[in-house]
Amino acid sequence: MKPLSRIAAVAGMALVGGISSAFAGDTFDAVKERGEVICGVHTGLYGFGAPDEKGNWTGLDIDMCRAVADAVFGDATKVKYVPLSAQARLTALQSGEVDILSRNTTWTLSRDTANGLNFTVTTYYDGQGFMVKKDLDLKSALELEGATICVQTGTTTEVNLADYFRANNMKFTPVTIEKYEEVTAAYLSGRCDAITSDASQLAAIRANDTPDPADHVILPEIISKEPLAPAVRHGDDQWFDIVRWSIFATMEAEEKGVTSANVEEAKKSTDPTVQRLVGATPGMGANLGLDEAWAFNIIKQVGNYGEIYERNVGMDSKLELPRGLNAMWTKGGLMYSPAFR
């Protein structure tokens, strides 16, 4: 949203000659030769991608990068994190600066096509919601008629907000501020009755920025679809397969009850799917061009999807987000891995 960085991006576009298309099929070889995966991540979004007190990157998006590093090298630490702003993220992937973009990025048709990306797997089903102070005693976003609503400029949040109120024939006053911190401050000062953003971000604001999280409620209405997914460059199918199956492996592990704690025993499992997953029955790794222990290493070092979720955004974290749509399909959610065979 900063005009300067936009101009810089435009100027960059003006100076760099044509776009190189020499990436096709080369990413995997380049990564192996380099010895690490370069991962584009958020500059700091608690639960998804942010450095912790010790300076280690943590978050759901981060763990997806670690899973890929495990699959390729058998070592989750072989990742280099590149923090990217919202404007720079797509260009960074297109230009080959990063191998994976795992940065809270919504999967949309235009990004998948016109921007030259391929989205791999939705790792978090998010959606725009509203947060209000508890003492307003609201039960639904439909009671927000005439309210003042704080919103951050840019992204599609502003349009979703206006669409929702138009669709329900209600009026509102937006207070549109550039920086996330200032938007939060304006909401907390009482300038606005409600704040709107992606539900996961509202949970982060409630957990980290409010004096008492119990004073704020996130209303049940979700007014937009924001499936967040890691993306790779369009046209490199081998790398695309490795990234997407690394993520699927975490989901399949959760479905089959394989965790970082019991993965050693799982090698002796009688379930043929589990045997193929952990490499006791060889074949899956070879198909991807990886070591047969690829998925074993992911589960051992990073964990299954459920562990990743609970640790970063679920009940074991400050965000305390319920699984909701992000539960396994067997538990009424949308997380579903294709078959491991």
Partner: peptide, 9 residues
């Protein structure tokens, strides 16, 4: 150059 790059993207 800008127009060419924009068009190709």
């Amino acid at each position: 150059n800008t127009l060419t790059n924009l068009a190709s993207r």
